[in-house]
């Protein structure tokens, strides 16, 4: 009797522009994309080399972005993995310590999986908050890296293989970039088309609902941490190959920049919102920014200030944050302008 009571969602416009607008509004990457455009235009004007030598820029993006791609899986579930940078270092050391390159790489990846599983074990089974669990893992692995390497860089036994690994393989693309692109495609498919990956969003967005719906939440968390671990270990193997040596102190700047890439990409740290594509955009913005600033001889301290500012902009332009800011500003102003009766 009241079928036409306005219960049909009216936001569905069927013309092209309407559809486009709906699609855009649904995406979480809008702000990351806008930021990327801004950064790219800025870089184009000041340092065109960023684009003429795009292979260098791409290399930097791949350096920052690879770890961030794996991290995205964990963050989307509302957990944190602070151990990624140390995982990278330890995996590199393990790999360089093994003479056979193939076995070394395999061992590095296994190390990543084991570390991921250990993180998940502490979070899921023991029930430690993931910030604390992975912070502990960070310190443990950093120490382990030093012990395994005897506190000095471990040189690859096959240095020539390493050096050729750093050379372009197809066109201008080095193996690192190709691996990065492949990882991105794999993660993108996993998080959008594969059931397990989609359920990560449920685990992060409404964990109780995920439990109630019969999703094996613990197993999903294990999977997420293991993805993060193996991707970080893979990045460690790539770094070790390209540098021809594994440095136990490696990754000192990786942790912050990979989190920064995810945040700039619009991933909500409390989970449930964001996308792998967003992380790619975030890493791209950050990579272009860093290369441009390096070319402009901006000091690293100032670079950090600028990156911090970009991060800040990325976070406060979140519609929710903006609403909160506007709301509190309005109530403040109202309180100020309201006449004060005799007090």
């Amino acid at each position: 009797m009241s079928d036409d009571q306005g219960l049909v969602l009216t936001s569905q416009r069927t013309d092209l522009i309407g559809r486009l607008r709906t699609t855009l509004a649904r995406r979480t990457e809008g702000r990351a994309l806008a930021l990327l455009v801004v950064v790219a235009i800025g870089a184009w004007i000041t340092e065109p080399v960023v684009f003429t030598s795009y292979d260098v820029t791409l290399g930097r993006i791949a350096l920052i972005g690879l770890v961030a791609l794996g991290l995205t899986a964990v963050i989307l579930m509302g957990e944190l993995d602070l151990s990624v940078a140390s995982t990278l270092a330890v995996a590199g050391v393990v790999m360089a310590s093994i003479d056979n390159l193939a076995i070394g790489i395999l061992a590095a990846l296994v190390v990543g999986l084991v570390i991921g599983a250990a993180n998940a074990f502490f979070v899921v089974v023991v029930g430690i908050n993931s910030f604390i669990a992975t912070l502990g893992m960070l310190f443990f692995l950093r120490g382990l890296g030093f012990v395994l390497s005897d506190e000095q860089p471990v040189r690859l036994s096959n240095i020539e293989a390493g050096i050729s690994f750093g050379k372009p393989l197809i066109g201008d693309f080095t193996p690192r970039m190709l691996i990065f692109i492949a990882t991105f495609i794999a993660m993108q498919i996993f998080m959008t088309r594969v059931r397990v990956g989609r359920e990560f969003y449920a685990v992060g967005g409404n964990r109780q609902a995920a439990y109630d719906a019969g999703i094996p939440v613990r197993r999903r968390i294990f999977t997420g941490f293991m993805i993060s671990g193996i991707v970080a270990a893979g990045a460690g193997a790539i770094n070790t190959l390209e540098r021809t040596a594994a440095d136990p102190t490696a990754g000192s700047t990786v942790l912050l920049s990979s989190f920064a890439a995810a945040i700039i990409g619009g991933i909500l740290l409390t989970g449930g919102r964001g996308s792998v594509f967003g992380t790619l955009l975030g890493a791209t913005s950050l990579g272009i920014l860093q290369v441009a600033l390096t070319l402009s001889a901006v000091q690293v301290d100032v670079q950090n200030i600028i990156i911090g500012f970009v991060l800040f902009v990325a976070v406060i332009t979140d519609p929710n944050s903006l609403r909160a800011v506007v709301g509190s500003a309005r109530s403040y102003l109202r309180a100020r302008t309201a006449p004060q009766p005799q007090s």
Binding site: V38, I41, G42, T46, E47, L293, V302, V310
Partner: peptide, 8 residues
Amino acid sequence: DTAASDGG
């Protein structure tokens, strides 16, 4: 955002 690089 050019100013980003310009500024410093």
